[in-house]
Amino acid sequence: MAALAQTIISGCVGAGSNRELQKALSALCMICCFVVGVECLCFNGSCQARSSSCLEEGNCGSGFQCQQCPARGILAPRCTRIRPTNPLSHVKSLPFNRYTWLTTHNSYAVQGMKDVGGVPRLSPSNQQDSILGQLQNGVRGLMLDMYDFEDDIWLCHSYGGHCHNFTAYQRAIDVLIEIRDFMRSNPEEIITLFIEDYVKVPQGLSRLFFEAGLNEFWFPVTRMPKYGVGDWPTVSNMIKRNQRLVVFTSKMNKEDSEGIAYQWTYVVENQYGDEGMRKGVCHNRQESYPMMVSLSLILMNHFPSLADYTGSCQHNSAELMQMMRTCYEAASSRVPNFIAVDFYKRSDGGGAPEAVDQANRQHLCRCWDAAHCKVLSLLPTRTISYNLHGIFP
């Protein structure tokens, strides 16, 4: 078995000589694409040609959406992916930091939400659907900006550390209850929250999570890698203990005062906004250690300073894939664990879901190419197990 394992891994990274084995494994992943001889996008066994045209949603399979991308000069509607492959449906035996998760920037800032107090909202929106819709489509990282507002804690897309009725979106507890209900209904899913924290009320955040009932899923700081270095527990262990909610705050003092992890002790993160989208450059944001520092988790931002619905289909396509490779090199050949974008459904084909799948392939067998990546589970003990169904098509 060890010899077979090494053969498959060698073939995966292009160094092996067992061509028949590699060919057999490749066929299992994207057989429909090999049959029709075109480049395909696949999700859970449903495949579409990358240029597959459509007239309405019903023309596309599960995990796809019919849309245009005028920013890329694509005016004819085509089927595009809106969901990544869930890596936990294939392997749960790896440490949490050996997976990549689709993450939404300003997850709460949803188009079409009702104004607060009848005052028109001036803040731009960054997503198309509700947080529940995002979770149902495989988003597992949520970026939430929390503020004191109207004697409560609200989600606001604001400025200057203060929330206003023209920048407010909704009460934080309402969103947290949605997350709680999703986690109760999906007992093997793990969710990570990145809180841009402007809450000044003492114990405000910890009380909020308790009132929302999310304490039942809380992953404690004491189980995180000391100083942010080293492996996390395996996801199977997190699921078994029901410690499936990982929460980070931007306020350092709250790790001691409220037991909420300070984000940049555990996460290196690239620059956000226009500066973070410069081609060929992936440097850290001011609060983060440099990308090359070996903290256990990596967050990759890829969205402009001003939300751009029309341009997002271009930002979330080839540009996103290129930036992922750039950040991979900047982080000493380490794959991002969280890929954060605006309008995650928008792309010219595979988009953010395909980027997440590529990253998970790299975690598992050091391949970017689906046709060469069939190893199911590479355990921390270096024991390898196989399942010949093919993963991350």
Rank of each mutant, 00 (worst) to 15 (best):
L245V: 12
N215S: 09
S250W: 08
T234D: 11
M224K: 00
M238K: 10
L208I: 06
G230I: 04
W218N: 11
N215Q: 09
L208A: 03
G204F: 11
W232L: 04
M224L: 11
F217K: 05
E211D: 15
P233D: 13
K251T: 08
E255T: 03
G204R: 05
R207V: 02
R223V: 07
N253L: 07
F248C: 05
I239E: 13
D231G: 04
V235H: 12
F217Y: 12
P225V: 00
T222L: 02
L205P: 00
S206K: 10
R223C: 03
K240Q: 15
K240C: 12
G228Y: 00
L245K: 05
F248E: 08
G230H: 05
G228M: 00
L214P: 10
K251G: 00
R241N: 15
N215L: 11
K226Y: 02
N237W: 09
F217E: 10
Q243P: 09
R241G: 05
F210V: 12
S236L: 11
G230P: 01
E258S: 03
E255P: 01
G213M: 10
V221I: 13
P233M: 13
K251C: 02
G213C: 07
P220R: 12
N242Y: 13
L208N: 04
Y227H: 05
L245H: 06
L245W: 03
E258A: 07
G230F: 01
M238Y: 02
Y227N: 04
T222H: 06
D231Y: 11
V235Q: 11
F217N: 04
V235W: 10
D256L: 14
F209P: 09
G230D: 05
E255D: 01
F248V: 01
M252Y: 13
G204V: 03
V235P: 13
E258N: 02
G230A: 01
V246A: 07
K251V: 14
L245S: 08
L205N: 04
L208C: 10
V229I: 06
L208Y: 02
I239Q: 15
S206I: 10
V221D: 07
D231I: 05
R223E: 14
A212I: 10
V229Q: 00
N237S: 15
F219N: 06
Q243M: 14
M224P: 06
M238Q: 14
G213F: 00
D256G: 04
A212K: 05
L245P: 05
Q243W: 13
F219R: 04
F217V: 08
F210Q: 13
F209E: 06
R207N: 11
W232F: 15
V235D: 11
F209D: 03
L214R: 05
T222P: 00
L208R: 04
S257A: 09
P233T: 05
T234W: 12
S250G: 09
E255L: 02
K226I: 04
I239G: 14
K226G: 00
P225I: 00
E255C: 01
K251S: 10
M238C: 13
L208F: 08
P233A: 11
M252T: 03
L214S: 04
S250V: 00
W232A: 06
G213D: 06
Q243D: 14
M252C: 07
E211G: 09
R207M: 06
F219Q: 03
G228D: 00
R244K: 14
S250L: 07
P220T: 06
G204W: 03
S236P: 13
